[in-house]
Amino acid sequence: MNPSRDQILGSIRRSFRRGPLAPEALAACETRLVTHRRNLIPERARTLPPRGQVELFVTMAEAVNATVTRVKDARDVPAAIAEYLARFNLPQRLVRAPDPVLDELPWSGRPLLETRRGVAEDSDLVGVTACFAAIAETGTLMLHSGAAGPTRNNFLPDTHIAVVRGDQVVAAYEDGWDRLRAARGGADGGVAMPRTVNFITGPSRTADIEQKIELGAHGPRRLHIVLVEDGEAS
């Protein structure tokens, strides 16, 4: 037995002058845990059509210092990345997450762009990842760990480039959770959570020295989003 555990639970119950929850309260709490009831979701993104959500996502992401380029077709992604790297004088060398979505892109069409598939190392200056969803409300990317998504790749490289399909944009965080539940539903109606879900809103920053905002504290200094518009819900 664990005496601290029992004492803490006992102390909580003593404070409320009760024992463990009565059956009725217990049932209400158990229901709450499995029904995923939504609380109020701000109007801002909820009422927009899909097209409007994509536009809001771009506006909000740019407002927090992310940059965005749009391409019409997934096949244009490597060229857009090469151009972005050239524009900011960054090396034409990158590590890309071992994600089938990225594997399908025509990297060989850009022979000057050196790509490595795998887990990011400290020496990797540019990392490319896909994403699971994108949240319009605040311009937020939602990524999760797994065989196709090493978490280090989101944080170690100086420059993080994320490929987002238009139909991955959802209104609110709650929509992101619903998609995750749909993709990874567990036996009990819950979700088989990945080890990590990363919500990323703009590049790394700090204001710890005299409240002055500096980008690139420990994570990426730059966050670039390549938005593939052909994947947009109409």
């Binding site: 909000m60 407002a63 927090v64 605040t138 311009g139 937020t140 959570m193 990590t196 879900v197 990363n198 919500f199 990323i200 809103t201 703009g202 590049p203 790394s204 920053r205 994570g219």
Partner: peptide, 9 residues
Amino acid sequence: QEFSTYTTV
């Protein structure tokens, strides 16, 4: 901020 840069679950 509208949302912090990193919210990690």
